[in-house]
Computed example of a mutant assay.
Amino acid sequence: MPFTAPLQPGQGFIQSAHYLPSTVENVLWGRLPCATDTAVLTIDSGDEVTIDTLSHEGVLEDQGRDPVSYFAGHGVGRENVLDDAIALAASGYQRDPKVDGPHVVTGPIRIRGAKPGDLLKMTVLEATPRVPYGVISNRHGRGALPGEFPLVEGSVSIFAAVDDDADGSQVGTLPLVAGGERSVRFPLRPFLGIMGVAVAGSTRPHSVPPGSHGGNIDINLLTEGSSLYLPVQVDGALAYVGDPHFAQGDGEVALTAMEASLRVTVRFEVVPQSEALAAFGALVGPLAETQEFLVPTGMDEDLDEAVRKCVRAAISLLHARYGMDEDLAYAYLSAATDFNISQVVDLISGVHARVRVSDFEGHHG
């Protein structure tokens, strides 16, 4: 996962013929696209797009809406602050923190021929860090332990640096004690917290709660090589990406994980309705796919109900894809499938199952 920091707009390696920078004109801040939004790029099914994404950390109002000053306080020079982050913060973009979310999303992208009933398959081909640092925040009383954390009044944002490990890989680092020299090191696994399609109607959804449109699903399996399938809700799909992470544990308990800007390359493919039904059944929400797993999801304000929805989605998937009897699928899931908490901090809790595709390969007598 090598990178040259910073990856400023238009600079460095751009993998695909289509490039979408995160200029003020190409992003939404705090809201997600709806049917009446105008695409900033139109492509064909199968096309790949290299997209710059921006982390909201460092540009938010409670951090001064001045990334140069904010990151200078953590020892980051102006030359290592992204120009597009500075431009967005200074642009006068009208965002109300009381009613809008924090996330910056790049898009929407129209995919020719996509229509309701189809699925949109978004495959992450590249996820390259644009800077060598990130931020982990606890704010709004919305982590897993509201009322207990933060330990002080207001918001707490923890700066996390990127360092080289002994084997040449890159790791995130946090001090064990504030101001101390000893640190904890953890692996980086860059992924997009937000991948989605536009909703029907003329109201842009809040960027925080995920749903059938995808959005802020925060599934950390969606690293390079993984795909997300989403039910198309409007003509052209109007896809978007954002909320870039360098690392996140399942649960994302403090409210955010290691948030930091990425350059990603995504392939967009329309799966026609007939093919989608044969492959997955009638999907009502996001479905992820990695080389090892099919990953159905469940989402609800109540975590227990999110688990139940995920189990139902997994049973339906096994029945549609493999013809498995539903009671046998239920038994299989209990014996062989992990159900993970995607996140518990986004108003709507998320759960995802990891169904091993190798268990269903070939014939087992």
Rank of each mutant, 00 (worst) to 15 (best):
D218Q: 04
T297R: 06
A278Q: 15
E48D: 13
C310D: 06
A336K: 15
G281Y: 05
Y240E: 04
H206M: 07
I111K: 12
E305F: 06
S358A: 15
R308Y: 10
Y93H: 13
Y93V: 13
P272Q: 07
Q273Y: 08
L283K: 09
L277G: 02
D300E: 09
I109Q: 01
T265C: 11
P231R: 04
H245R: 02
H18F: 11
T203Y: 00
R267L: 01
T23S: 15
S202I: 00
V253G: 12
S69R: 14
F360W: 14
E25F: 09
F280W: 12
F159M: 10
E289S: 13
R204K: 08
G180T: 02
Y19W: 12
D96Y: 04
F280N: 08
P116I: 01
A161K: 14
G211A: 05
G107F: 02
Q8N: 14
F339H: 11
G365R: 11
I158K: 11
P210F: 00
F13K: 15
G362E: 12
E79A: 15
V49L: 01
V208H: 11
L88C: 05
G193W: 00
F268I: 04
G134P: 04
M122S: 13
E61F: 08
A279C: 08
V351D: 07
G77D: 12
Q94E: 15
V24D: 11
C34G: 03
V284M: 14
S226L: 06
G107D: 10
V351S: 06
G236L: 06
V271T: 08
T337N: 04
D327F: 07
L41C: 07
T173Y: 05
V266S: 08
P150H: 11
A127Y: 02
F293Q: 02
G236W: 04
I217N: 09
N26A: 03
K115Y: 00
D164S: 09
R78I: 09
V253M: 14
A331H: 08
G362W: 04
V241Q: 04
P175Y: 04
Y240H: 07
V81H: 09
A127N: 05
S69D: 15
E275M: 06
E326P: 02
L145V: 09
F360A: 06
E126M: 11
A276Y: 09
N340S: 13
L41E: 08
A306H: 08
G251M: 13
M324S: 03
V234F: 00
E292F: 12
D47Y: 10
L188K: 01
L287H: 06
M258T: 07
D243I: 00
V284S: 15
P132M: 07
T36V: 13
G154N: 10
Y330S: 12
F191H: 02
A239T: 07
Y240I: 04
I348P: 04
F186R: 10
S261I: 01
T290D: 13
N216S: 07
G180Y: 10
S169A: 13
A87L: 02
G365F: 03
Y322M: 03
S227Q: 09
V357H: 10
V351A: 06
E292V: 05
T173C: 12
T106H: 05
R31Q: 13
G113C: 10
K98S: 12
L262E: 04
V177Y: 08
V241L: 07
E252G: 01
T53L: 09
Y229S: 10
A198L: 03
L151A: 14
V104S: 09
